[in-house]
Design a protein around this nucleic acid. Structure first.
Ligand SMILES: [Mn+2]
Ligand SMILES: [Mn+2]
Ligand SMILES: [Mn+2]
Ligand SMILES: [Mn+2]
Lengths: 230, 230
DNA sequence: TTTAACTGTTAGATTAGTCTAACTTTATTA
DNA sequence: TAATAAAGTTAGACTAATCTAACAGTTAAA
């Protein structure tokens, strides 16, 4: 049995490695920052997680997940995203309200519950933020995606997900009418401060790099992020 | 904010007083037994609950809930029973599977979640075990009910709820085909050991007092437990 | 290559919730 | 009423998760 806290460490490690293209291991400070605890606390906990064969790690070394740890972390992500989908689809929560509650619900462990929920929702592929939901085996389709900040002037793309799940960001996105699957065109971009003018449904908005870096997009025609020849 | 543990103390106090006809206060030992902890632990916790004005209590005295404590305890019961209903109605859990999971889900606090769930389930009045669900204000219709053990030979009654929520008991009830709203007739009862022969849907079963004391019934015609003149 | 900056570890303290063992108060029974 | 039993409290200890402060190891710069 894993405690809430252990599960949070594993989930965060999944986010920091599995979901971070090209990153296989992290340091104590980075993990501590992402968990909002002090490095000393992480050092301690790592001993316990290593004891349970959930992480690969040695003193002063880098941290990575074992297969077992990765699976456990993936299951937390699965539960989180299924609950978000439930709240959004069935209880009429908005996409900026679901994350906080899912942080708690994700720790209620029961395969029967979570697989029942999956079936009840008719096996959704994505959560309300456009993130893929791992299946019962902990497998997930890791998509190649660009961020909106990588798109050039004059080009169009399709929003598939958001990186930031914070209330602030999501409510701002709502305010300018942005939705998953929308098409965005880059109208202009300042070299100086990267302020970008975008076009959504015939309306223009000036947005910051903080915004454009938080939006995942693919080619609006073929759905690919890399090697698209449309 | 109340911790899981504090919520469990309050919920148990509600069960031991509010839901126990004629009982207004309990002792440390009884509370300890019901929470599966030692009396010393309860003594400690009572200081904290008193500090927060959730219980009335003084050293070596009896324990009762304040209005505030009662409301908080009722909300835990509300969450518990709504989750049981959700699992039973929407995720196809059987009535002997829901209790354990609801013990965890009941501690996820969010009015929006719980009132949303209530609405989604179309404001159910009873949980799968026949127990009334408190409303959003913590109010509940406390029914007068007898236990099956109080019914005389030759009389019939209608099952409205079960007292025991344990897997063992509920699976046994399933095995003999017992369901909420069934009509039961007392065929015979031994003075010696209170073994009782009952009739459900034209089948006879011999059951123990442990069983008959765990079944709540009312008059099969008027639905009353007391003062029925049918 | 030596120092400075950064990264990570350890020691000691704290809090919540629990326990056992010893003690105190209240209730019951002889 | 005095002895005994039952109920309840307190002291001291433990675990998990956290912190701060001091220390140690690693990396990068001067
Ligand atoms: Mn989320
Ligand atoms: Mn999400
Ligand atoms: Mn229950
Ligand atoms: Mn129930």
């Amino acid at each position: 049995m894993l405690s809430f806290t252990e599960e949070n460490y594993l989930k965060t490690l999944v986010q920091l490695t599995v979901f971070s293209e090209g990153v296989e291991e992290v340091g104590v400070n980075s993990l501590a920052k992402n968990l909002s605890v002090k490095p000393a606390t992480v050092s301690d906990m790592l001993r316990k997680l290593k004891e349970k064969s959930l992480v690969n790690y040695k003193k002063y070394g880098k941290i990575s997940l074992t297969e077992e740890g990765k699976l456990a972390g993936m299951m937390v992500v699965r539960r989180h995203r299924l609950w978000e989908t439930f709240l959004y689809q069935k209880l009429d929560f908005s996409w900026d309200e679901v994350h906080e509650l899912a942080e708690e619900l994700e720790h209620v462990y029961s395969s029967k519950l979570i697989n029942g929920l999956d079936k009840f929702l008719e096996f959704p592929a994505f959560d309300p933020h456009g993130d893929a939901i791992p299946n019962a085996k902990g497998e997930i389709a890791l998509p190649f995606r660009k961020t909106l900040s990588e798109i050039s002037i004059g080009e169009s793309c399709r929003i598939v997900a958001v990186k930031d799940n914070s209330t602030d960001f999501l409510q701002y996105a709502d305010k300018i009418g942005l939705k998953i699957q929308d098409v965005i065109t880059i109208v202009a971009k300042e070299d100086f401060d990267a302020l970008t003018t975008i076009l959504i449904r015939n309306e223009e908005f000036v947005v910051s790099p903080k915004f454009t870096e938080n939006i995942f997009v693919v080619c609006r025609l073929c759905g690919k992020a890399k090697g698209c020849s449309c």
